[in-house]
Every structure is written in structure tokens, then in C-alpha cells.
Design a binder for these strands. Structure first.
Lengths: 177, 177
DNA sequence: AAGATCATGTAAGAGGTTACATGATTGA
DNA sequence: TCAATCATGTAACCTCTTACATGATCTT
């Protein structure tokens, strides 16, 4: 499983609470890793049991208390081993394509309408990624070097979303005839 | 869940055994839907219990006996309802990007080596998709029209793989410096 | 003789989703 | 006053993977 590793990667950068990790997943890692809060809390529990992370309670006056987790030496070791082992190629399960494949069972209008709504959301994702990219591009050289690897993952998002939209445009034109 | 729907989509086209379905998943649907044989057999069992498919035993002399499944009216109805409902946007969980994000824990050589091995397999996938496309493009107009929707899903594979390779090239150049 | 292809399954466990549960503070 | 944000969890259930299990035929 990789959610554990994704959590360790984030904690290796900085200690965080479960809530903060969920936010990170939605923001910086969001376009290539997704996790619900329930799952994150469950994994943090297991990681704690396995001594890969520890936490300290932080009491806050104006906000609810939180547990701030940090990676342990054991966790760092686990991460290093994981990173030095090859990962399996990504598993793709795309329900929209299954639908399109069996699209003769739906009306052309419904198919096009659904495609359009997906185009909308992909376009929004792309816009968002591009605005993050613009922030990166205005950084100083030192900062740029520091965030180079995360930036590479951002590029994957941008190139991937552009390709998706290019494909969708092709499908729209083909089906509209 | 969509494996059930993916199976129903395939059975709606033609009756098949579990073994044949697995092959279809590896071939025509393979680049957007993946399933192991164990899961396919389990789902066929459930679909049979739910009366969405039925099967007939086919006895073969030279090969093992097999069960040929067909979709029922109830199954077709389920499919139609599923296709007319919006699907959720695809969930992406890409371990390679998590690794790249935390790539400062690995050596540059290891990162590049891993990327290269992924480039190889994506290139092979792309070559394969292109050869399927060539087959499609030499078909007569009637055949082409018949396979139009599956062809659109093939295009997704081709455009997506090209984009992946384009990105990987960018990363290689950036990291090699 | 070894490996691929055909053919089907069970069982345990890991991973992920949905539903349920609570409660304070802040901004519109 | 309504929605959002902050903050954490349990329980049931569904989905998927890994390991185990069998056995014939065909090709190299």
C-alpha cells in the first residue's frame, strides 16, 4: 500500500496533524493522491502502532486540540527502502471510459452532456494547476531548486490534464456529427 | 463499483466465459480497466446470484469445460441505469509521483533508472495501442462506425500515453543536468 | 522436460468508502 | 442563522490483492 508511504513522505517534510495531512492531499498532492480523512486517521493509528510515527497533543485555546505527528527513524528507514524499490506501474480504472465503450446504450445527448461536465471539472483542475505553476515560476532560484521535484509532479498534472482535454475535444467533435 | 458494470458492458456485446472476460480486460479494455481473474470470478458469482447474468456449461473435448455467461434483461436494465447516471471523476493514486515528490531521499541515478524503466513500459503500451489503431483505420466505413466508441477509448489511451512520455522526457532532461 | 495456454475457483487479509458521531469558532 | 473551517474518530461494508489449489493440452 502507498497511502502509508504518501503520509510518511509528507511527514518527512514537516510534522503535521491528520487534518493538515488531509488538506495537503487535497492541495499539493491532490492530483496524484487522494485520501479521505477517515482513511488517513486509520493509517495514522496503524503507523503509530508500528512505531513509524509518534505524536504529541497540542492544546489550542481558540481551536480544537490536535495531535501533531512526526516521522520516527524507523519510519524514515521504511520510506528510504520503499523509495529505493521499484513501484508497480499504475493501475488505471476509468469508469467514464467503460461508459463510453458501452455508450450505444445511452442517448448521444446524455453522453455529450456527461462529457461536457467532465470537461468543466478537468478545465478547473488545469486552471488551478497553472496558477500554482505561476507561483513557482516567480520564485527565486534557490526556492525553485528546493521545490524542483514537487514541481515535476505538478508538470505531470498540467501535461496530463491538457492531454485529457485535447482528447475530450476530439470526442466531442466526433460525436457531434 | 464498476467492475460489475464493466463486465456487463462486455457481456452486452457478446456472451463470454470468465476466462475470456479476463482476456478482454487485458486486451481491448486493458488500458482503462484492470481486473485479476480472481475478482472477475467472484463478481460473476455475485452477478449470477443477483440474476444479472446467467450461464450455461459448455463441455469441450480438447479443452477444460467452461461456463459461458450471458447478460439477462435485469442486467441490461441495470447497465442502462448506470450509463444514464453521472460517474464520479476518476480517482488518481499514482505511487510513482509520490516517490518523485519525496525523491530527495533517493539517489539521482536510482530515480532516473526507475523513470527509464517506466518509460520503456509506457512506450510499449503506446506501440501496442498504435498497432490496434492501424487495424481500425484500415476497416471499411461500416466497421469503423460500428467500433467508433471503442475507438474513442483507444484514442484516450494513445493521447494519454503520448502525454505521459512527453512529461517523462521533460523530467529526464531536468534531472540529468 | 519445461513453460504457455486454457479453465475455474476459495480464503485471508489489506485497502478504501459510506454512514454515523460530535462540537467549537468564524465569517457572510 | 447558515455554512465553512477546524478537529478527530468508530463501524460496517465493499473492493481488491495475494496466496493457495488443481489439472489437461500444446508448443518448444
Amino acid at each position: 500500500m502507498s497511502l502509508k508511504h504518501a503520509i510518511l513522505v509528507l511527514l518527512e517534510t514537516q510534522p503535521s496533524s491528520g487534518y493538515e495531512l488531509v488538506k495537503h492531499f487535497k492541495q499539493s498532492l491532490g492530483y496524484f493522491w487522494n485520501a479521505k480523512h477517515q482513511q488517513v486517521y486509520q493509517q495514522l493509528k496503524k503507523l503509530t502502532e508500528d512505531k513509524q510515527v509518534t505524536f504529541q497533543a497540542h492544546f489550542q485555546d481558540d481551536k480544537p486540540d490536535k495531535k501533531v505527528y512526526q516521522i520516527t527513524d524507523l519510519g524514515r528507514e521504511t520510506l528510504r527502502r520503499w523509495i529505493n524499490q521499484p513501484v508497480k506501474p499504475n493501475k488505471i480504472n476509468d469508469a467514464l471510459l467503460v461508459k463510453l465503450y458501452g455508450g450505444h446504450l445511452a442517448s448521444k445527448e446524455d453522453l455529450l452532456a456527461e462529457l461536457e461536465s467532465h470537461i468543466d471539472s478537468h478545465q478547473k483542475t488545469l486552471d488551478n494547476l497553472i496558477s500554482i505553476e505561476n507561483t513557482y515560476l516567480t520564485m527565486g532560484d534557490e526556492q525553485k531548486a528546493h521545490y524542483l521535484l514537487p514541481y515535476m509532479t505538478l508538470r505531470r498534472g498540467i501535461i496530463g490534464e491538457r492531454a485529457w482535454l485535447e482528447w475530450a475535444e476530439e470526442v466531442m467533435q466526433t460525436l457531434r456529427v
